[in-house]
Design a protein around this nucleic acid. Structure first.
Lengths: 339, 339
DNA sequence: CAGCGTGCCGTAAACGTTTACGGAAACAGT
DNA sequence: ACTGTTTCCGTAAACGTTTACGGCACGCTG
């Protein structure tokens, strides 16, 4: 509530000096600086960010845009908030704040984004839920807004990005399964055109050809990225004459439906069907058997995101970085059943 | 990027007229208004929110504050984002935007909040994760910021709030269980001092005395609000000489751990122990048996939150409202086992 | 025709900061 | 004593809007 003007009047000095004192500028007597700081603290003065932003052309806050629609489809996962939490503590060290910009399902992604940047409430933006052809990338490039994407896209643009190691997930998982003797391995993919789906698919195909395994399109199933997707996948598998012996899940929550349907059908996970999921989370150990999954260190990822966007803000190139994980094997995989 | 000045130069009129035309003010010729709107659209002009906010003293965006720490403890539930989604579409109808203000676990709740209001990036705030003695309420009251809490608190302050019907959950659940013949019913509560814990407890106690059921403190278990909490609760129950025959869960994800531990112990949910959870969500049907739970219509709740905060912004009293739900019974409850 | 109202528009101040610029005072060096 | 330098501080412009105010050019009325 108290403005810099009131503070200056109270101190009997000019507002310019107050501002300089508070912002650590050189041209100010150490003792007056102390007086100013003390008075500011006493009166509870905090610089109005709107005025400051208008003058500086920067708000010291960065935004991370998510689409609530896709988050709602995944009906709440534990990926996003831990990452945000870590990113925020890192940004706070550089006097930046973080806000989440949720694009509602009733809104158009691009008009939402241009509205947000038009409002000028953030200096830079982290984009999540990257599509294969994501128009937001060109939009931000054109407007000259510093940004970083959490996820690669198919568009050829040299922007900064950090992405999870989907290739590593598929590679390690398939290698593990093949070593166990599996030859027919199915995979679930998202239905929307999020880029990670494309990458999972490409790596899957590449692995099969490199290891002289035959490719069967019936083993690639595009399903909802939640428990229902598991039901859909198992239903599709059961209808096949030549069933796969293993299954890769593009999102761990799908396992709930998979386990449930398999139990219904009298099949045992890890014996009749080996299952591996992307990504490990704590509640998976309450499935029985616990799900073999790829583990991503989320806190470190959040910190990397923060450092990355700060680099972009400084005008540096910014990261282009694949964030690795590790496969945690459990009893959800085993040798294929004897025919 | 384009300012109102450029737009005015392009149209050969003054910036005052441009502003009036765009904001629907009366004193402007209809044909010039059309010209201005057309040119604004053509040049992609969007009023800079910082300048507008500075002049108007309002930003047309409202914030909803969450604590990532508690969200992380619940490791991702499907409650929050659907509510935000609905609130946002409703706010958009009144030309308001919504941002999520995540308070990181490394930050102090009050200093975070006062920093946020000091920045002046939001006109009003919705508070979630309400504590029993929540200092944020007094802070916002003192600063005169319009706010609304999603959850009641123990502090006596006549602010606007909307809360879930925790009393109804406990009342209906206990009534159902007592009708089935249960007499010893346990309940899990959160460990932190979130207010909902206190309300669940109070209603639980009140019900017991009203129905002449004996109260046993050993049946009240404060546990983590996630799968681990289920393990903790079941472990505590198993250690009792006189075990309860039913269990109320303060958060549905606890059921994961409960089911897992009971299965481990060779006990059957719905037969050896009846279980009811707060709150229904889609993935519960993949537990077997599906969890009896209290269902809350989230989209309508989000809309009510939006309407409520808008009312507060208009200076109206704002709602004080308990949001009801309905109990969906499944095979996770049944008559108590014969001794 | 004088007077008045109305419709439309330009001017300029204001919102709360930051910062380039200039200047007063103090001090040092010749 | 004069000049030059340093230290500190005040002045005012600028950021991009909105809006109160005044004024010009009409058209209308008496």
């Amino acid at each position: 509530m108290t403005s810099i003007r009131e503070l200056a009047m109270h101190l009997q000095i000019s507002i310019g000096t107050v501002s300089r004192a508070l912002n650590g500028k050189p041209d100010v007597n150490p003792v007056t600086r102390e007086r100013v700081i003390a008075a500011a603290h006493e009166l509870g003065y905090a610089p109005n960010q709107t005025g400051r932003a208008l003058r500086r052309g920067a708000t010291q806050t960065i935004g991370i845009m998510i689409e609530t629609s896709s988050a709602v489809e995944r009906n709440g996962d534990d990926f996003f908030l831990p990452v945000v939490d870590a990113a925020q503590t890192q940004l706070a060290r550089h006097a930046y704040d973080l806000v989440i910009l949720p694009c509602s399902s009733s809104d158009d992604v691009c008009s939402f984004l241009s509205r947000v940047v038009g409002r000028g409430i953030v200096d830079a933006i982290i984009l999540a839920d990257i599509r294969r052809q994501d128009p937001r990338i060109e939009l931000l490039s054109k407007k000259g807004i510093p940004f970083l994407t959490l996820g690669r896209s198919g568009v050829s643009s040299n922007h900064a990005w950090i992405d999870l190691d989907f290739e590593g997930f598929v590679e390690h998982s398939l290698a593990e399964l093949v070593a166990l003797g599996h030859r027919r391995i199915a995979i679930t993919l998202p239905q929307s055109d999020v880029n990670l789906g494309e990458m999972l698919y490409a790596t899957y195909q590449s692995f099969l050809t490199r290891h002289q395994l035959s490719y069967d399109p019936a083993l690639v199933m595009r399903v909802e990225q939640n428990e229902n997707g598991g039901s859909q996948a198992v239903a599709a598998l059961m209808a096949l004459d030549d069933r796969p012996t293993a299954l890769l899940l593009s999102y761990e929550a799908i396992a709930m439906g998979v386990y449930s349907e398999l139990r219904e059908a009298g099949l045992v996970v890890g014996q009749d069907l080996s299952v591996i999921g992307f990504r490990h989370n704590p509640q998976l150990r309450f499935l029985s058997p616990g799900l073999t999954a790829y583990e991503i260190p989320l806190a470190a990822l959040g910190q990397a995101l923060a450092d990355g966007i700060l680099a972009v803000l400084r005008g540096e190139p910014g990261p282009t970085l694949i964030w690795p994980g590790t496969l945690h094997a459990t009893a959800s995989i085993g040798p294929p059943p004897k025919p």
